[in-house]
Design a binder for these strands. Structure first.
Ligand SMILES: [Mn+2]
Ligand SMILES: [Mn+2]
Ligand SMILES: [Zn+2]
Ligand SMILES: [Zn+2]
Lengths: 136, 136
DNA sequence: AGACTAATGGGAATGGTTATCATTAGCGTG
DNA sequence: CACGCTAATGATAACCATTCCCATTAGTCT
């Protein structure tokens, strides 16, 4: 059996991205993250940001959501808390994680009912958070 | 009070799109629809297809879903059946509509719990339909 | 028929994301 | 500590769905 997945090399760039992402609870786009890193003096290419975010996402270490504009936005995942969905502020990107079980039961039941297999829900709830709502 | 929304002019192109869309129950992209129309002899521009689909979607006459590749795909909506979500085959685009009430209750409750206002769920269930599953 | 203007459509522009590929730099080995 | 292998980087070009632009066409109303 081929023992999978050699862990990625630890590079300055990858660390910078990981640390920035663990320091915020908002969903941010690759370009936003690139700008933020640049503005703090990090030297890093845009390609690297895209690649690394994807790699982290595939590894399950961060979450991806596609916002209303069709952009992918990324956020550090509440570690090892299993499957969950997100409630995201459409103004500032602030997000909270919500348990998946209610939804997953519902998904399984309607998939069975219509004889679909392999059903996976793509679900994100967008709203306006307390802070943004009070900021008129 | 300004009485809104003059209805759109009835053009050959708009009719062609509406009729094609009412003849299938699969979600299709603007480009696919454009090709299909072209292949049946219709003379129609890609811009027009995009514009018309958006206009029909805003009018609530068709539904839009953003698929896994981030493309918008369109489908004739089961008329006047109110808010609903979709269970879509990720192979062929075949879709069925599913009632929204269970989900909407859940959305309202978690939004209240986290003090988010204006919460709207973006939800689509992707799976594999009976036909595609049996086609090995 | 004539006027008004919404609708059309070819082509250029946009913009997020991916592909290329020469260069750099982890990291295991002797 | 060199050395070698190759993953990772990043500047740049390509990609590609969608939108913009604007001159031309054609519904619709009088
Ligand atoms: Mn998460
Ligand atoms: Mn529908
Ligand atoms: Zn907010
Ligand atoms: Zn199918």
């Amino acid at each position: 059996m081929t023992e999978g997945a050699v862990q990625p090399r630890r590079t300055r760039q990858r660390s910078a991205i990981a640390s920035l992402i663990s320091a915020t609870d908002s969903f941010q786009s690759a370009q936003e993250i690139h700008h933020l890193l640049r503005s703090t003096g990090e030297v890093i290419g845009l390609s690297t940001v895209y690649r690394t975010l994807q790699s982290l996402a595939e590894a399950g270490e961060i979450d991806v959501v596609i916002n209303a504009d069709g952009e992918s936005v990324y956020r550090g995942c509440g570690q090892g808390r299993g499957l969950h969905y997100h409630l995201v502020c459409r103004i500032c990107g602030h997000a909270v994680e919500v348990a998946a079980d209610t939804i997953d039961r519902w998904v399984r039941s309607i998939a069975r009912e219509h004889r679909f297999s392999d059903a996976v829900a793509s679900l994100t709830v967008f709203g306006i958070c307390r802070a943004c709502a009070s900021a008129t």
